[in-house]
Design a protein around this nucleic acid. Structure first.
Length: 695
DNA sequence: AAGTAGAACTACGCTTACGT
DNA sequence: ACGTAAGCGTAGTTCTACTT
């Protein structure tokens, strides 16, 4: 039992001076210490719990004790992930403040930013780039370029931070003693971006693991790349000689890979382009050898940095640097921008898939267009000859597309009739002319010549008129004839694409994007795409049994052929696009799949594109050499950057100075990809699509 | 067509608030 | 009274929407 002193109160705590209230608090504190037996904190918690929750929160609020504290650095994570700028964040902070959510200050956020980006030294300036004006003129203009000053220090910082964050991995047996770094570039969304990816990650190709180290707002032409990337030549060379101290002091060598689309790779290595006489970056094959399989040499000499340097030297000294002579020097017209061995240049698997799929698809389209034309010709014939009822044709859902054309046949027929009549007259006149020439042999020679000339010019005039009429008829028919892709066969393709949510791009020759090619190369979409041809042709033939059967067989043949080609290519695509390791067994399987596809493709003896050559000769060796699928090594990760930068650009849109704007955009990007990036916004939980089974 | 108000941006300095 | 952190204001600039 103890006695305690309790003062006689004169003022309540509400009215008393703060110092008095503080004194009373100290008194209670010491008492609590005693009562709790030395564990005041625990005791206070119990006391607080006696209050109703609402009241307790109200009290804490009044006391200025925030209920929620966002850990330092995490608001920055939010800022970079949802892409807002400091101004917008001020508003958010003020708003959060109302609800007692305490966050780090703007100042501290800026400090953290500076700390996270300390190794990068981001510079931005105007550089002279060649750009195209609206009138397609090439001019030199100053455009913003933002870049990291030192690539090696950025890479090593990334490695160190990853090591600390314990996110480094060694996914394959071929990379045990080395650090693999992929460097790639791509143009898109109005700017060219150059980025590196550390391959020792669970998902090396994600945007979060892709660090852009140079970005400029111009096309990726040879001179532009030289302007912007010239500074990295020595740095990439230095990088390959460096060693990095990993966990436990183990020293790793750095191996650099180069990735990008084929145009980029050609430019980087000084190749004159994909349409040159020696278009391949990995070997010295001639274009004629690609087209004509039989003339191909048994062993294609591979390109090396050495023979490319030799080619370039000869191009300069013997060829006098004249691009017209490039073909004599294996099309090497410029020194490589990075001294990275050719075998470390990764075959652009994504673009090969895009290119070959696009080619197969447009070929299918062209075949169907041919069928459409045949149907049109056939309709023309039977209508003109009155063999069929117009209404019957226009009632058919497939043939109704020819409505305008059928109408035009009538109009054209008027002119055709007139031309026919003229034709008869012409024939008559010509006979008379012959008689004239024969008959008047004895008469006055001059007189005869005048008459003959007159008759001749009359016939010529008639012929002209007839030709005019025929031309008019032809023009009317051509005008009304179906536009490419609108015929009964061709028009069926787009709905199939839509069914699988695949869209073709409005520009770039209506090409496809990677995900969509992936989707379309599955068995089901392929069958849907080619099956639609058979369906259409049988439906037409059911309604109109008089249609020539040749149409049926041609359509069926095309359908079967493309189903086979698509499926064969799909099996190749799926194999080489994998992002996991690939052993000899998988490589062998891929090899035989590619051979099967190419053999089938060659059956029709069409020209073989450079992309097909690369597929045939360089995909498998590249996979064997490094032990991974192209999904791991190749360029798809770089492609994803553009949309990321688009959304990043939104928050810096209103920075007036384009240079400062680009710099800020790059900084924001570097923040999002920093291995120390905390407080991320979680990925949305993907909604499982409700399966309608059992209904 | 020209002019104008207002909003937006970053980076940095200045004022205020708070704790000791 | 002092030091530090937080948060606000502003320079200098451009863009947009609206008015004259």
């Amino acid at each position: 039992m103890r006695f305690m002193h309790t003062p006689q109160l004169e003022k309540t705590s509400t009215d008393a001076a703060p110092s008095t209230v503080a004194k009373r608090a100290r008194m209670l504190e010491s008492m609590r210490e005693q009562v709790s037996g030395g564990n005041g904190e625990h005791q206070l918690m119990a006391e607080m719990k006696r209050y109703p929750k609402d009241q307790l929160f109200q009290m804490l609020d009044k006391a200025g004790l925030a209920q929620i504290r966002i850990p330092t650095g995490h608001l920055l994570g939010l800022k970079t992930d949802i892409q807002v700028n400091h101004g917008q964040l001020r508003k958010l902070k003020r708003w959060l403040d109302q609800y007692g959510v305490a966050t780090e200050s703007e100042r501290r956020m800026r400090q953290t930013t500076a700390n996270l980006l300390s190794a990068y030294e981001v510079t931005a300036e105007l550089l002279p780039f060649s750009v195209k004006t609206d009138d397609d003129e090439v001019i030199i203009a100053l455009r913003p370029c933002a870049y990291i000053f030192s690539l090696p220090s950025a890479v090593f910082d990334y490695l160190e931070r990853s090591k600390r964050a314990k996110t480094l991995e060694w996914p394959g047996p071929t990379m045990t003693d080395e650090i693999w770094l992929k460097i790639g570039g791509d143009h898109g969304g109005g700017s060219f971006k150059m980025a590196y990816q550390l391959l020792h990650k669970t998902h090396p190709n994600t945007v979060a693991n892709t660090t852009v180290f140079a970005i400029f707002e111009a096309k990726d032409s040879r001179d532009n790349l030289k302007t912007a990337l010239g500074r990295y030549r020595a740095e990439v060379e230095a990088l390959q000689k460096e060693k990095w101290q990993g966990e436990g002091g183990h020293a790793y060598n750095l191996r650099v890979f180069i990735a990008g689309d084929y145009a980029f790779l050609s430019t980087i290595y000084g190749l004159s382009g994909a349409s040159g006489s020696h278009p391949c970056l990995w070997c010295q094959i001639r274009k004629s050898e690609i087209d004509d399989q039989d003339s191909q040499r048994l062993r294609l000499p591979p390109r090396t940095l050495e023979n490319m340097a030799q080619d370039y030297w000869e191009f300069l000294h013997e060829g006098r640097g004249n691009i017209k002579h490039a073909q004599n020097y294996h099309n090497i017209i410029s020194p490589p921008m990075f001294r990275v061995s050719i075998e470390q240049v990764i075959v652009p698997g994504l673009h090969i898939s895009l290119g070959i799929f696009h080619r197969l698809y447009t070929e299918l389209e062209a075949t169907l267009q041919g069928l459409d034309r045949k149907v049109e010709k056939y309709l023309h014939m039977i209508i003109r000859d009155g063999e069929t009822d117009r209404e019957e044709i226009l009632d058919d859902p497939h043939l109704a597309r020819f409505q305008a054309y059928v109408a035009a046949i009538d109009k054209a027929q008027v002119y055709e009739e007139q031309a026919k009549e003229l034709q008869e007259e012409i024939e008559e006149q010509e006979t008379q002319l012959a008689w004239l020439a024969y008959d008047n042999q004895g008469v006055n020679k001059n007189m005869h010549e005048v008459v003959f000339k007159e008759a001749t010019s009359m016939v010529t005039a008639l012929i002209n008129r007839r030709d005019n009429l025929e031309r008019k008829a032809g023009a009317i028919l051509t005008e009304a004839s179906l536009k490419p892709g609108k015929g009964p066969f061709c028009s069926k393709l787009d709905p199939v694409l839509q069914e699988f949510h695949v869209q073709r791009q409005a520009y770039h020759g209506k090409s496809f994007i990677g995900n969509h090619v992936d989707k379309m190369l599955q068995d089901k979409p392929i069958e849907a795409l080619t099956g639609v041809v058979e369906k259409t042709v049988t439906e037409i033939l059911d309604e109109h049994p008089t249609f020539p059967l040749a149409l049926l067989s041609a359509a069926m043949k095309a359908s079967k052929k493309y189903e086979k080609l698509f499926k064969l290519f799909g099996s190749c695509h799926r194999l080489y696009s994998t992002s996991s390791t690939m052993g000899e067994k998988e490589a062998d399987e891929l090899k035989s799949n590619i051979t099967a596809f190419m053999d089938t493709y060659r059956e029709e003896s069409r020209t073989v594109s450079i992309k097909m050559h690369i597929l045939e000769h360089h995909v498998v060796p590249c996979i064997r050499r490094w032990g991974f699928g192209l999904g791991f090594l190749a360029e798809q990760g770089i492609e994803k950057l553009h949309s990321h930068f688009n959304s990043l650009g939104r928050s810096t849109r209103s920075i007036p100075d384009p240079v400062a704007r680009l710099k800020s955009t790059l900084n924001n990007h570097l923040l999002t990809v920093s291995p120390d990036h905390v407080g991320r916004v979680p990925k949305p939980v993907s909604q499982k699509k409700e399966k309608t089974k059992g209904q």
